[in-house]
Design a binder for these strands. Structure first.
Length: 519
RNA sequence: GCCAGAGUAGCUCAGGGGUAGAGCAGAGGACUCAUAAGCCUUUGGUCGGGGGUUCAAAUCCCUCCUCUGGCACCA
């Protein structure tokens, strides 16, 4: 079986609240996944949750629940969130699942057997209250620790380390040779600068089980559990491995697929991550894979952060955008459209209500929505909704939009693709005014000309629905329904000109993005 | 502090030696199919300051100012 296109989001810490940043990352990944499917590629899209760690352990205890019961409840919250965003993920990983733990233990065993791990004593300042070691950064300017840390003692603890530093030069060369490995380019430069100018230190990968029980035990030392790096990052490979993916199961000695043939997913094509965790994904994770003899992902695609009204979002000041609220008020398509259209991937964004409303009314309602409504209304009124013979006056414009959209999507330029699609919207709106079908309709001698104009407009509406299908969820289906065409095609090739059959009778036009008063 | 990047129209940004561009916002107009939407026309800028190279600089060089991003793991 040929390898599928495989894309992931970061997994979210189960304890956190779903916010705009999570929604944005997931929607970006979703649109890329949908665009690949629409290009005819078999695709696998994974998202999920990071459920281990001290904070979960403590929070569960505070609520008198087992950590697993606590996670199960929160996992439902996250799954509802994902459904709200309309994600097309093929699976949902939770790091507490046995299928994930098997992989983590397998890769740790292999690294241990290969001498890539070692045990060492660390001595440092330990906060008994926070149950964590403190670092220089935790010190106040006078050198003392903040009282929030409570009693601070000197403590020794033995842990396992992973030989990260040994791979520093190799990784720098890999990134040099593969310009697309970290995107966008300025993020790549940051990582390269770091790899060339700083010393990469080894990574502490465990906690004693006595201190942290809610984690995956080391297969070769039950006194320890593995800590965030191997536990969380491994999710990208653990799920393909659990299906028996030959690129993973074989090298790690995991059981082959129960259902043959095993899907071929690894290596991942794209890891979509936020700029805050770029280092873990473009330094730690590749080295972990390399050390274990596994293939590296092809690309780490780094997105920026959103601000609200030019300020950092913060729950304490109430300066937040609640994606669920926006979707409830404006619809999932308006939400998805705004975050995709506002930013090129990699830039930081600034959410403003005025900006959101402006794009909603100017681009969605007045641009796209009104075009579809006026076009179909005229076909309904002047031709009883029956599609006239094929005409090709706007065919070149339609084909250009298709070509550009495909080209942009193949490079994950989602914003640029939307701009290309909207240039067809603008062209068609202009065409209405230039050809004035409402005037042609008054002159019986102009019947053939009116037929031509109406075919072109109706076909543009259909093409727009197809082009928008990777981006929007409800609108393309609504357009198809209003066209009386049934199921939306799954492939962008349906956007080639002239597929709207003459003689076909369309459905009932209705506004796509209703005007909203007082919002 | 170090390393990048950026400062161009009211806003968001493109351009990168040879009459300053787009979208939005603003102004005016003709139309009426449509969600009072759409279409056409149009006002805005000595391209951060200063100096230099050149016949010619927003563009190249120097310098200054301002802003942004990054500087991990640090058990």
């Amino acid at each position: 079986m040929s390898k599928r296109f495989y894309i992931t989001t970061a997994i979210d810490y189960v304890n956190g609240e779903p916010h705009l940043g999570h929604a944005y990352e997931k929607i970006v990944a979703d649109v890329i996944a949908r665009s690949r499917r629409a290009a005819g590629q078999e695709t696998f899209f994974l998202t999920g949750l990071d459920e281990h760690g001290q904070k979960v352990q403590q929070a569960a205890q505070a609520e008198g629940k087992t950590p697993q019961a606590y996670c199960d409840e929160l996992a439902e919250v996250w799954q509802r969130f994902i459904a709200k965003l309309g994600l097309s993920n093929d699976d949902f990983v939770r790091t507490t699942q046995p299928r994930h733990q098997r992989f983590v233990q397998a890769i740790l065993s292999k690294l241990h057997a290969g001498g890539q791990l070692y045990k060492e004593v660390y001595r440092g300042s330990y906060s008994t209250k926070e149950e964590t070691f403190l670092t220089a950064k935790d010190r106040r300017p006078d050198g003392s620790f903040d009282p929030i840390f409570g009693e601070v003692i000197e403590l020794e603890e033995e842990n396992y380390y992973f030989k990260l530093g040994a791979y520093q030069r190799w990784l720098a060369e890999h990134i040099e040779r593969n310009p697309s490995f970290i995107q966008p380019a300025h993020r790549r430069n940051e990582i390269l600068g770091f790899l060339k100018n700083d010393v990469l230190e080894d990574l502490c990968i465990t906690r004693p089980a006595s201190r942290l029980s809610w984690g995956i035990p080391l297969p070769f030392d039950p006194d320890y559990v593995t800590y965030v790096w191997f536990d969380a990052l491994s999710n990208y490979a653990s799920i393909p491995a659990s299906f028996g993916d030959p690129a993973l199961a074989g090298p790690l000695g995991l059981p082959p697929s129960a259902s043959q043939p095993a899907p071929s997913l690894w290596p991942a094509d794209i890891h979509v991550v936020g700029k805050d965790i770029i280092r873990f994904h473009s330094v730690f994770w590749p080295i972990m894979l390399k050390a274990a003899g596994l293939l590296l992902p092809l690309q780490v695609l780094v997105h920026g952060w959103w601000q609200k009204d030019g300020q950092k979002m913060s729950k304490s000041t109430g300066n937040v955008v609640d994606p669920v609220r926006v979707i409830d008020d404006w619809g999932v398509d308006a939400f998805r459209y705004y975050v995709l259209r506002e930013l090129d991937i990699g830039q930081d964004g600034n959410w403003t209500h005025a900006g959101f409303k402006s794009r909603y009314s100017a681009e969605l309602a007045n641009g796209l929505g009104n075009l579809v409504n006026r076009s179909l209304s005229m076909l309904k009124r002047y031709r009883e909704g029956v599609v006239p013979p094929v005409s090709t006056e706007l065919a070149a414009d339609g084909e250009r939009a298709l070509t550009e959209t495909r080209a942009h999507l193949s490079q994950n330029h989602l914003q640029a693709a939307l701009q290309s699609i909207w240039s067809l919207v603008a062209r068609a709106n202009q065409y209405v005014d230039h050809t004035a079908p409402f005037k042609l309709a008054k002159d019986p001698a102009q019947g053939r000309r009116l037929d031509e104009v109406l075919y072109n407009l109706t076909e543009v509406c259909r093409i727009l629905a197809v082009l928008l299908s990777p981006f929007l969820l409800e609108t393309p289906a609504k357009i198809y329904s209003q066209l009386g065409l049934g199921a939306l095609p799954g492939n962008l090739s349906a956007a080639t000109w002239g597929r709207l059959p003459p003689g076909h009778r369309i459905g009932t036009p209705a506004p796509l993005f209703p005007r909203k008063e007082g919002c």
